[in-house]
Design a protein around this nucleic acid. Structure first.
Length: 505
RNA sequence: GGCGCGUUCGUCUAGCGGCUAGGACGGGACCCUUUCAAGGUCCAGAGACGGGUUCGAUUCCCGUACGCGCUACCA
């Protein structure tokens, strides 16, 4: 049991210094992924919550790479995790800790536990364990390691050690109940008899997860362990280890999982579970963070679209959810549309230009040649797009000479009455050619006058014109379009469309 | 199987004993309009089930069901 504040004569004494210490000591939190794959959105969200709380309270946010599983850990995964966190804007304090570097301490801690009697040597082999497990299975009984199997006399032990017989170190789970007040769930309790004497050190001298975590969290001075609720059943084991090692317990906060649309764990195949997937799809990091935050936490009112500083301002631990949430791609995209138009242009501009170059829509040199035009184009396009990919798609006619005509737009706006369309486009072209200048201010009256003289609604002129010069039924305001595309290119596309309408059967 | 956690519209959620159960995404209709977005108005849509406690339960307690997690010399 954890030792509480000292109690003398029935009253509890906590010094004023101690009190102010607990209140004022900034928390130390950590994100501890294992580098066995991409950065999962669930992990990213756990990292985000840890980061938010550290930044909000003036505490520290540390990063620990749990690479003790040598078979599955890769350097690429480690890099992917770094990159994903950086992309989301989650910067960490102090040096990254690689768990593999601490195996000596892990081993020493295990040996300390043997020395103080809370752990013991177990010479049972893997094969023997498998046999025992199979037997229990056959009898339909739950298998739990029986401590008596590891009872050897001191003589036997020294003899086994002398011949180099391999052994693991097992933790001796005491009788009783292990409970804690979880920050998100409240009190959670486990009967110790439900927990078997678990291995903490393998026969090759390397640590098992629960030992490594506890040893490192103690060494790193972690005060709040915030992680996925799939770790709830590890927690009593870890608490027992803290106590056996004589360390102060941290607080625990178990945040809910994120599920796929089928209500099950997110799967790579169906759900784009890697944050890198969303980066590639043109989601903005602030939108991703906003969306992820809302999947396990809510500010308590109807606020949804939040910029990073607002997230920080509103975030509190007591509003963390208990319930797993389903990852809804459509809402993410809506959220991204909000951020796309609300974030400063300077922030989204480089992400869009990168995408334009990556998709071969423009070269960096071409975009840099006229920075104000590029900025204006992106600014116009971003308000009506949900993802950067959509911006890229709509940017083509402004950056590429060859217009791809959208078949649907053409048939709806031009081919219904080709004679009339050709006629109106010709008149439009004339009006544009004769306009005093190629500016919105000069072009607009010219086209409005034309519409009036023809007795047409302005839209009857604007729509075919839009399709003729962009090939799309979607675009910014037509005068922005014309100036963005330029006089020569606009007139040439008009001429070509008129030509097409006149000649094709 | 055992243990643990969870359960409000299709989805994300608000609610902290008395609500016409609110908002958002998505869906539908309309308005605005130069197309598309954005924005605005409106519509459909929910407290798993059964017991308690209470004058009164979505809200508190207990069962059941369902879902998820853990149950390795994985993390």
């Amino acid at each position: 049991m954890p030792t509480g504040p000292s109690s003398v004569g029935g009253s509890v004494f906590i010094s004023a210094a101690e009190l102010s210490m607990t209140a004022a000591t900034p928390p130390r939190l950590r994100f501890a992924p294992s580098p066995t794959g991409y950065l999962h959105v669930g992990g990213a969200r756990t990292a985000l919550f840890n980061w938010l709380w550290a930044r909000k309270t003036g505490g520290k946010f540390l990063l620990r790479i749990e690479d003790t599983d040598k078979a599955r850990s890769t350097d690429e995964s480690t890099q992917a995790i770094f990159h994903g966190l950086e992309w989301l804007g989650l910067d960490w304090d102090e040096d990254v800790i690689f768990q593999g570097a601490n195996v000596a301490r892990h081993k020493a801690d295990a040996e300390r536990l043997v020395a103080n009697g809370t752990a013991y040597l177990d010479f049972t082999t893997v094969a023997e364990l498998e046999r025992l497990r199979a037997d229990a299975d056959a009898r339909k009984e739950p298998f739990r390691f029986d401590r008596r199997l590891a009872t050897w006399t001191p003589d036997e032990i020294s003899q086994k050690l002398a011949v180099g017989e391999p052994f693991t170190i097992r933790f001796r789970v005491p009788d009783g109940t292990t409970a804690w007040d979880d920050i998100v769930h409240g009190r959670i309790a486990f009967e110790n008899k439900e927990i078997e004497d678990f291995i903490i050190l393998r026969s090759d001298g390397t640590p098992i997860y629960n030992l490594a975590v506890v040893s490192d969290d103690i060494a790193m001075g972690i005060t709040i362990v915030m992680r996925g609720d799939d770790h709830i059943s590890n927690t009593p084991k870890q608490i027992l280890l803290y106590q056996a090692l004589g360390a102060t317990l941290p607080q625990f906060a178990h945040v809910p999982m994120i599920h796929g649309t089928d209500g099950k764990k997110l799967s790579k195949r169906r759900d784009a579970a890697a944050v890198g997937d969303w980066e590639y799809k043109g989601i903005l990091p602030t939108a991703m963070a906003n969306f992820l935050a809302l999947l396990g936490w809510s500010p308590g009112d109807d606020l949804e679209v939040m910029m990073p500083d607002e997230l920080l301002a509103h975030f509190t631990l007591d509003r963390l959810h208990k319930k797993a949430a389903i990852f809804d791609t459509q809402k993410l995209e809506w959220m991204n549309g909000q951020h796309l138009s609300k974030r400063p242009l300077a922030e989204v501009l480089p992400r869009v230009t990168d995408a334009l170059v990556r998709h071969g829509v423009a070269t960096q040199a071409q975009l840099d040649a006229d920075p104000s035009r590029t900025a204006h184009l992106v600014d116009q396009l971003r308000v009506r797009a949900r993802t950067i990919e959509e911006v890229v798609k709509q940017a083509r006619p402004y950056l590429i000479d060859d217009v791809e005509y959208d078949a649907d737009a053409v048939s709806r706006s031009l081919l219904k009455d080709r004679i009339a369309s050709a006629d109106i486009l010709s008149a439009t072209r004339d009006a544009l050619v004769n306009a005093p200048a190629w500016t919105a201010e000069a072009l607009e009256p010219a086209l409005r006058t034309l519409a009036e003289s023809r007795g047409l609604a302005a839209g009857k002129i604007f729509t075919p014109l839009r399709v003729a010069v962009t090939g799309l039924s979607v675009s910014p305001g037509i005068f922005d379009v014309l100036t963005l595309i330029g006089r020569d290119r606009s007139l040439e596309r008009l001429a070509r469309t008129i030509d097409m309408l006149a000649t094709t059967a």
